[in-house]
């Protein structure tokens, strides 16, 4: 989207006619509506002058109309922003990457992810029973995973003296984690500051995209099947509003467990009637186990190949790694045997 210059807006706003929708510059980039008018005005011609009849009116009538329109011109001269506003209730479209939604991925499902051997080793020994450990039960999705399927409310803090946006906040539905995206230019804290699930985020506008950088995230997961993400990861996000749609792009760089960035995009639809529901979480011991026990498979999950076998996928493919992200890998898949044929 191209930014609307205030002076350009002022010039266009002084026209005593209604711009054609197809050629009008939207007040908010991506917004398909037009500004409300306070009085009926004739349609514009293509050169911006008024249509038949009006340009042949008397000079006094033109002056009268000009006087009438001046207040409208003033309204149109409000400060124009280069960015969209992302505030609102946004409902997840739930149409991308099924394996990150609902019940989640299968055990051993890593294809298309640029993980390294250490991440794979960890995930092969991970047990879903870990979620039953009291300290794991109320962990919210971290900042780099939350947008995968949860709807979100976004609101902002505005300095009333300057009208500058100090911060945006997001609140996703699942477990209600609240993020703060600082817009006031503050630096990220030193290394030993507290890390949180949502991290420390700062934002800046790049044209009409809000670019957010997040550090200081607690160690968490890349996927809900044991693939780890370290506390050194840096998350870069792009919030792109197109009318009533919001595209939320996440780029995860983790020098510990990834060899290349993971890039995900998720789409949301503006739904002013949507309410983020409370998601209270209480910690309950439902599985009695010896004190200090933390479930895992010390020798690896014996069912780690089940996913590949069930879908007759090559073992090399489901093992993941950067190579499996690229189309060229498809050409090699015919050369490797499906897992149930012993193709390790």
């Amino acid at each position: 989207m191209t930014a609307t210059h205030p002076h350009a807006r002022r010039r266009s706003g002084s026209r005593a006619c209604v711009p054609d929708k197809a050629t009008a510059r939207p007040l908010v980039p991506g917004w398909t509506g037009t500004a409300p008018t306070h009085a009926p005005l004739p349609a514009c011609s293509t050169d911006g002058t008024s249509s038949a009849g009006w340009h042949r009116s008397t000079r006094s009538l033109r002056r009268l109309i000009l006087l009438l329109c001046l207040p409208l011109a003033g309204l149109g001269a409000n400060p124009a922003w280069a960015q969209s506003d992302i505030v609102g209730e946004w409902e997840h479209r739930q149409h991308e990457d099924r394996n990150e939604r609902g019940a989640g991925p299968d055990i051993g499902e890593y294809e298309g992810l640029p993980i390294n051997g250490a991440a794979r080793y960890h995930a092969e020994r991970w047990s879903p029973s870990l979620w039953t450990v009291p300290e794991h039960q109320c962990i919210p999705h971290p900042a780099d995973y939350g947008p995968n399927f949860s709807s979100v409310r976004i609101w902002k803090d505005v300095n009333p003296l300057t009208q500058e946006v100090v911060a945006y906040h997001t609140n996703i539905a699942w477990n209600n984690p609240v993020r703060t995206i600082w817009m006031d230019g503050r630096p990220h804290p030193p290394a030993n500051a507290l890390h949180t699930w949502e991290g420390f985020s700062t934002g800046r506008w790049d044209g009409d995209r809000l670019v957010v950088t997040t550090t200081h995230m607690k160690p968490a997961y890349l996927r809900r099947n044991g693939l780890p993400r370290s506390e050194t990861a840096v998350l870069t996000e792009y919030f792109i509003r197109t009318g009533d749609f919001l595209t939320w792009v996440s780029v995860i760089v983790d020098p510990v467990y990834l060899t290349e960035p993971i890039i995900r995009s998720r789409d949301f639809h503006l739904n002013p009637g949507y309410q983020v529901e409370l998601y209270p979480c209480s910690i309950d011991v439902e599985v009695p186990r010896p004190a200090g026990e933390v479930p895992s498979y010390v020798d690896g999950n014996p069912d780690i190949r089940q996913y590949a076998e069930e879908y007759a996928l090559p073992w090399e493919a489901v093992q993941g790694g950067a190579a499996t992200m690229y189309p060229e890998f498809i050409a090699t898949m015919g050369q490797v045997a499906p897992a149930q044929e012993g193709g390790e």
Binding site: E135, N192, H195
Partner: peptide, 12 residues
Amino acid sequence: RLSDEGDIQDYR
């Protein structure tokens, strides 16, 4: 780093 239970549980 300064921590809370969420960090200690990961370390444990």
